[in-house]
Amino acid sequence: MGGPEQTLAFAWRELFNPLGMRQVTLEFDGSGTLQGASNMLASARDWARFGMLYLNNGQVGGVRLFNEDWVDFSASATLDTDYGAGFWTNRSAAKGAAKRLRDGIPPDAFFAAGFLDQRIAIIPSRNLVIVRLGDSTGPSGGGVERLIAEVLSAIKE
């Protein structure tokens, strides 16, 4: 991209501004390389806007930001795992997906996962994005899955 300034300009021009994201911080390492696999900080509302982009197959406000096939590719399992192209997915026979299905999370759901069990859950069959920030790992684990299942139960189909 040419360095941190060019990378930030590109991200704001092509993604953050079109989505209406306003509270976003990208982190770079000591040599100025974007830490693209992690270290993007944003508000819950901005993460929800990001999730809505995927829920809406790459479109925002009638404008296509990326090919609609990318969403399906991102949410499809790779090999024998429950991980796709950047997202954990229930579209798999892997153990993690099977557990989420037992927990009541629909088979079409896919998730961006952050540090300390933070999540963006994208559930197309329910036309829903759920964002959870904060530490929810707890001693018994599974805090986010339980939250998602309870939200789904509360809003009924």
Rank of each mutant, 00 (worst) to 15 (best):
2 G>I: 01
2 G>N: 07
3 G>D: 02
4 P>Y: 00
5 E>R: 12
10 F>N: 12
12 W>C: 02
14 E>V: 10
14 E>M: 13
15 L>G: 11
15 L>S: 08
16 F>E: 08
16 F>A: 13
16 F>L: 11
17 N>T: 14
18 P>W: 00
18 P>N: 07
20 G>F: 03
20 G>E: 06
27 E>A: 09
28 F>A: 12
30 G>P: 10
32 G>H: 06
37 A>N: 13
37 A>Y: 14
39 N>C: 07
40 M>W: 02
40 M>P: 03
41 L>N: 13
42 A>D: 03
43 S>Q: 10
44 A>M: 06
44 A>D: 04
45 R>E: 15
45 R>P: 01
47 W>N: 10
47 W>H: 14
47 W>G: 07
48 A>P: 13
50 F>N: 10
53 L>A: 01
54 Y>L: 07
55 L>Y: 07
57 N>C: 01
58 G>M: 05
60 V>Y: 04
63 V>P: 00
66 F>T: 09
67 N>A: 06
70 W>I: 13
70 W>M: 09
74 S>M: 10
77 A>Y: 00
77 A>T: 09
79 L>C: 00
79 L>R: 14
79 L>T: 10
83 Y>T: 08
83 Y>W: 14
84 G>Y: 04
84 G>C: 05
84 G>A: 12
85 A>I: 04
86 G>M: 07
87 F>C: 08
88 W>L: 09
88 W>F: 10
88 W>C: 02
89 T>E: 11
89 T>W: 02
90 N>E: 04
90 N>D: 11
91 R>K: 13
92 S>H: 08
92 S>P: 07
95 K>L: 12
96 G>E: 11
96 G>R: 14
96 G>D: 08
96 G>L: 10
97 A>Q: 08
99 K>H: 02
100 R>Q: 11
103 D>M: 15
104 G>P: 12
106 P>F: 13
107 P>R: 15
108 D>T: 11
111 F>C: 02
111 F>M: 05
112 A>H: 10
114 G>C: 03
115 F>G: 01
117 D>G: 05
118 Q>H: 08
119 R>S: 06
121 A>Q: 11
122 I>R: 05
124 P>N: 00
125 S>C: 01
126 R>D: 11
127 N>R: 12
128 L>S: 04
129 V>K: 11
130 I>D: 10
133 L>A: 03
135 D>W: 00
140 S>K: 13
144 V>I: 09
144 V>S: 15
145 E>P: 04
147 L>N: 00
148 I>D: 04
149 A>N: 04
151 V>K: 09
152 L>H: 07
153 S>I: 01
156 K>L: 04
157 E>S: 11
